[in-house]
């Protein structure tokens, strides 16, 4: 139990420190409007990070999540807007395809990293077919949802909290969630206990697909248009977010709340520089630096724990 708590403590602290630094540099950010601005774009990143977490949970890595989110964004900005029924059907089919990919990867013993590398081309191609040039429009309900201004707490915070808590309940508190973590922990033991690994992997990939779809929709709701390359960076950001949030590549050790915090931290790291009045050239670099810094601190913590 304490280990689990320690695992979540670091992402909380790193976000808090970064946020404190931003507030110190720009006290006006400490407002409803400021917070919303800081974390708005973190919602799709957080959803994509949760999607990646589902895959990392079963010991795989998804290199296609960025192009998949781009594809879903393109579908949302075109089909869902113009022909809602067809649009939602396509998104549902995409989730099922994701589940299918998971099943095939397990059945044929394929390396996930390469299969998703291949499917990333497929999603990218489909995105271009759906939306050849940047454009499209966000469905009204989606836009008003993403841009709504609930009283007291900004939408970005509410959404992030909801995503974190709901996936925490699903993965850490429900019995199926524990079994899913078990796929990453000890696949063979689960199989001996009578579980179908194929179905579980399909479920994990399906969940990843679902959160990928949500990420694409949230992104369109915020930007009100899409293009085929809109979310390419999410592939790397989502992996970074999961690890930053205390997840590990093996053993099914992941933390949904940590993953959301990791995504928030990475988004904040990118905008942190503008508060320092540093050139935006270093935006990506700041994300890298934060990642390295947090992992270095984690090493110190776990070392002390071991002693």
């Amino acid at each position: 139990m304490t280990r689990e708590h320690l695992r979540i403590l670091l992402p909380v602290l790193s976000l808090a420190v970064l946020l404190a630094a931003v507030f110190y540099l720009q006290p006006r950010a400490m407002s409803y409007f400021g917070l919303n601005l800081l974390f708005n774009l973190a919602i799709p990143v957080a959803l994509a990070t949760i999607a990646q977490m589902m895959i990392i949970m079963v010991n795989d890595i998804d290199l296609s999540i960025g192009t998949f989110v781009s594809f879903c964004a393109c579908v949302t900005a075109t089909l869902v807007q113009d022909a809602p029924l067809l649009g939602y059907a396509v998104l549902l089919a995409a989730v099922l395809v994701y589940a299918g990919i998971g099943a095939v990867i397990h059945l044929r013993g394929l390396p996930a990293i390469v299969v998703t590398l291949g499917t990333s081309f497929v999603w990218g191609g489909l995105a271009i077919l759906v939306l050849p040039s940047p454009g499209g429009a966000s469905p009204d309900w989606l836009q008003s949802l993403m841009k709504s201004k609930p009283p007291l707490v900004p939408m970005a915070i509410i959404a992030a909290t909801l995503i974190g808590v709901l996936t925490h309940l699903l993965i850490k508190r429900s019995s199926i969630g524990v079994v899913l973590q078990g796929v990453g922990g000890n696949e063979r033991a689960l199989e001996r206990a009578g579980w179908s690994i194929v179905r579980l992997k399909a479920l994990a990939y399906g969940l990843a697909g679902l959160f990928g779809v949500l990420a694409g929709m949230a992104l369109v709701g915020l930007t009100t248009s899409a293009d085929a390359n809109i979310a390419l960076r999410y592939t790397l950001l989502s992996i970074a977010g999961v690890i930053l949030g205390g997840g590990e590549f093996t053993g099914g050790r992941v933390s949904p709340i940590g993953a959301v915090l990791g995504a928030l931290t990475l988004t904040l790291a990118a905008s942190f520089l503008s508060f320092l009045r540093l050139s935006p050239d270093w935006q990506i670099g700041a994300q890298g630096a934060i990642l390295i810094l947090v992992l270095a601190i984690r090493l110190l913590v776990t070392r002390r724990e071991a002693n």
Binding site: G285, Q287, G288, I292
Partner: peptide, 9 residues
């Protein structure tokens, strides 16, 4: 991955 962010910057 993280060092690539730094190199790119």
């Amino acid at each position: 991955l993280s060092s690539s962010f730094l190199f790119q910057s």
